[in-house]
Nucleic acid binder design. Structure first.
Lengths: 196, 196
DNA sequence: CGATCGCTGGAGCGATCGTTCTAGAGCAAT
DNA sequence: ATTGCTCTAGAACGATCGCTCCAGCGATCG
């Protein structure tokens, strides 16, 4: 009954999420995971009998949920949704720059890598994105947007953010994030003004 | 003097580009490349003494140039830039759907994977994106946009397209491509109208 | 005080990784 | 005919891959 929180399991999930974001699925070895997570192969297979795939899915879903909370916090702490959306891009740019362009979306790298290769993980990445989209859309609906407009705005926001991550990491510049952010924020402003 | 075009080299580059797009850098083995490209390890290392990295860079640069020509053709064949930009999204969506969500950006998967891992390939992906951006920006300048506005619009276009690829492949739906395309095209229309 | 159980530690499996190396085919110039 | 060069073919290497297996730890329970 005492909360037997499993340190090892959590540590494995956390370090796996980090390594997946930086090296991708195929590029992350189990040896590297247990070395960085201060665990052993034995305990890894105890907690994740399905092996690498099990562990990767858990890591993706956990960091996906964490990232959703982070974005929700930025939006909900702002005076209104539009301002929150506008602020989230410079925030992402700052994290990106501070981490040497390593700390971007925890899902995207694996998502592209497994999309045509591993149906189970592909489904997981898709469901994580859907969760983010619904969290965004619900806030936009609350701000006055219709069903369709809210969904479209959420899709545009996510696409612009993910694409800016790709371009920024490749070019080692936050220019794309700034341009994409300004444009998305303006577009959301316009949509909200029209709905009012 | 006779054009001793090297079949094997070209075949290796082409099949490598395909495999990189589908499986990423770490997920693509040399054995798989020579098997699919009907070549042998020996000739691979003859043409690419630097091994996998050499071959991958050649494949990225070649398919990057090819993709640039394709996008340029779509834009240049349209009555005007804005229409071309608007049409390019449904075109991308159609290719995506027809290929079972495999045939997206030939650079992005590797770009995310190597961004924090392999500086040489990261530089290559960055330079390829810069080439695309300049091709786009030059056409927008010709249509009347100022230096800054053209660059920003190109960044927004590329970010939206790349991000839509990520979301579409993960969710197996072209919904994001449609939403992103419509919004980007509207924004370009507005920018061009303002500049006139 | 054993017995049981959740969990850890790590040796070792077969397979595959990227790479090296040598043998030789095909062709052109001497 | 010989030499030299480009290119192909593939065996073999050490390292690493994901994974299996089992011994043993410490806490809990009858």
């Amino acid at each position: 009954m005492a909360e037997r929180t499993n340190d090892t399991r959590e540590r494995l999930v956390a370090t796996t999420a980090d390594l997946l974001r930086e090296h991708g699925y195929a590029g992350t070895g189990l040896k590297a995971i247990v070395a960085a997570g201060e665990a052993t192969i034995g305990s890894l297979y105890h907690h994740f009998p399905g092996g690498k795939e099990d562990l990767a899915e858990a890591a993706l879903r956990t960091s996906g949920a964490g990232y959703q909370l982070l974005v929700e916090a930025i939006i909900d702490d702002a005076p209104d949704v539009a301002t929150g959306i506008r602020q989230s891009f410079p925030a992402a740019a700052q994290v990106l720059e501070a981490s040497g362009y390593a700390d971007a979306c925890p899902i995207a790298t694996v998502a592209l890598e497994v999309a045509s290769t591993n149906e189970r993980l592909r489904r997981a990445t898709g469901e994580i994105f859907e969760g983010w989209l619904e969290a965004l859309a619900s806030r936009l609906r609350a701000a006055g947007l219709g069903e369709r407009a809210a969904r479209d705005a959420a899709l545009v926001y996510l696409s612009a953010l993910e694409g800016a991550f790709v371009v920024c990491r490749a070019t080692r510049s936050t220019e794309a994030m700034a341009a994409a952010g300004a444009w998305v924020a303006d577009a959301v402003d316009a949509a909200l003004a029209e709905a009012r």
